[in-house]
Computed example of a mutant assay.
Amino acid sequence: MNRNAHFFYALRLPMETKILLKEQCDRLKQQLHFGRWVHHEDYHITLAFLGNAEKSQLEQSAAYVQKALMDVSSFKLSINSLGVFGKKESPRIFWAGAANEDKLHEVRKLVYEACYQAQFKLESRPFSPHITLARKWKGENEFAKEKLVSIDPFAASPIQFSATEVVLYQTHLDREPKYESIQVFPFSE
């Protein structure tokens, strides 16, 4: 297993949803000056970041995730907000937020516990479901968070989609898109 490879479990977004997000990002890029915009094929909602891992540990986590998600059925989600993480004046992450849906939190808990059972050391911060759109503020002026309210396309017109699967991804820093699907865990209908 490549020592520089990182792995994570995420909720996959349907391609139609990724394209709608990309269209909004193409408009937002003209007003928000971030250093790197995420390739639309890489949009996802992270459930558990694993870092680098041995093949046997990944396989063990996959078996636990498979079992944990066995009875989960697909569910509706909506993307309804914009936000940032990091310093107020120069955020490091610009994101689109998913509505607070109990089923999403339940799926995250199942995946998180399965990975923990496989002996992964996991993020301990509270789960904040989001889709990273861009990284590293590069604007000439300080970032003005209040501007997000006036340009947020999702407040009035959320993007709705069906969550149908969790994916184990591998990160390839030298590629674009940079996330490769290693294993898929579909929900029941």
Rank of each mutant, 00 (worst) to 15 (best):
C25H: 02
S61G: 03
P129I: 14
L47K: 06
E54R: 05
F143A: 02
N141S: 15
L32T: 01
H40M: 04
K109P: 00
W137H: 06
H33T: 11
A63E: 12
I131Y: 01
P158G: 05
L82N: 00
R3I: 12
S150V: 03
I93H: 14
F143R: 03
K22A: 08
E54M: 02
P153Q: 05
A5F: 09
E113V: 01
C25F: 02
E142L: 11
A53K: 03
V184A: 08
F143I: 03
F154Q: 05
H40S: 08
F120M: 09
L82R: 00
L77P: 07
Q24F: 02
S162Q: 12
A98N: 13
V167Y: 02
A98P: 09
I159W: 01
S61C: 04
L20P: 00
C25M: 14
G97Y: 05
L148W: 00
E41S: 12
K136Y: 11
F161L: 02
R125T: 12
R125E: 11
Y9A: 07
R135L: 07
S181L: 03
F185R: 08
L104P: 09
L11M: 09
K87C: 07
N2W: 08
K121N: 05
H44D: 11
I182N: 10
L110V: 08
A156T: 04
E59L: 08
C115K: 03
R175N: 13
A48L: 03
E106H: 15
K147L: 04
E89W: 07
V72H: 06
M1Y: 13
I45R: 00
A10K: 07
N141D: 13
R175I: 07
Y112L: 03
A63N: 11
L82S: 00
I45C: 01
R3G: 10
M1G: 15
E41Y: 13
F94I: 05
K147M: 10
T171M: 04
A144M: 12
L58F: 05
D174A: 13
E180C: 04
K76S: 14
Q183N: 15
F85I: 08
P158N: 04
L104Y: 05
A156Y: 01
Y43M: 02
Y116M: 10
A163C: 04
H44S: 07
F8C: 08
L13I: 12
L148I: 00
Y169L: 03
V184S: 13
Q117W: 02
D26E: 14
V84G: 00
E146Q: 02
L58V: 04
K88R: 14
V65N: 07
K178Q: 15
I159P: 00
Q66F: 09
D71M: 07
A62Q: 13
I93R: 13
K109V: 01
A163F: 03
S162A: 06
A53H: 05
H33P: 09
W137R: 11
S124W: 04
K147A: 11
